[in-house]
Design a protein around this nucleic acid. Structure first.
Lengths: 114, 114
DNA sequence: ATCGCTGTATTATGGCAGTGAAGCAGTATG
DNA sequence: CATACTGCTTCACTGCCATAATACAGCGAT
């Protein structure tokens, strides 16, 4: 499948991103600890740490060693902008190319839902 | 990048797919030999063979041992249908989900080209 | 039959990514 | 200081990808 073949740490990264974007974790909130999140997701603590690592490199979370990881100020906006840019630059172009090549119209895609 | 991180044999597979879809290799035409295509693409013959292997398993190419590999009858349609199904089932849904989450409208995407 | 092309199988090697187990290091609280 | 939480570092295992050298097997033309 598409989701099955994806590395765990990337899937975790997506879960966290979505949680922040959806407001489940507001700015200043503490994220679940590495171990807690690992148990919750049935993953290895180290794998969770690897997922978290990317966020702190991007300045989306603030790390207080010995305390926890907190959603940085402006993280939601920053994350949204980054994902929008990535989508428009990297995700959409190949999708559009494939649609053209296969002659898939937007109509066919939008019918499939209410 | 997106293209750089992709395994070589998958990239080769894509190149061949596009060539067939675009009619560069018509039905009945012989595909480049493993060794020739390897030189052309700067890859290893074995890697090319691995790329070709998937096509014969899907019945898209006919193998004449000692002669070469030929585009099967109906391959173009078959390939097109398979890719359309895959696109609609596996590619589009996550794209659409992300567009909703990031509030990206189709208008923004379609402006960027003539 | 021989030569030159075709695809295929075998085995081995190097590199890299993902995952995992244990232990180290920092901080708050008592 | 002791405890219990936090993140983080180190070492090792696994599997996949790519490459390589070599050999084998089928076909066509000379």
């Amino acid at each position: 499948m598409n989701n099955t073949s994806k590395p765990v740490y990337l899937k975790l990264r997506d879960i966290i991103s979505e949680s922040i974007l959806d407001g489940e974790y507001g700015e200043g909130d503490m994220l679940p600890s590495v171990r807690a999140f690992a148990v919750e997701q049935g993953a290895n603590p180290l794998t969770v740490a690897k997922a978290y690592q990317g966020f702190q490199e991007d300045g989306l979370v603030t790390v207080k060693r010995g305390v926890g990881m907190f959603v940085a100020t402006g993280a939601k906006t920053k994350l949204r902008d980054a994902q929008r840019t990535d989508f428009i630059k990297n995700v959409w172009p190949p999708v559009e190319r494939q649609m053209k090549r296969l002659n898939i119209k937007l109509d066919e895609l939008l019918e499939n839902e209410a």
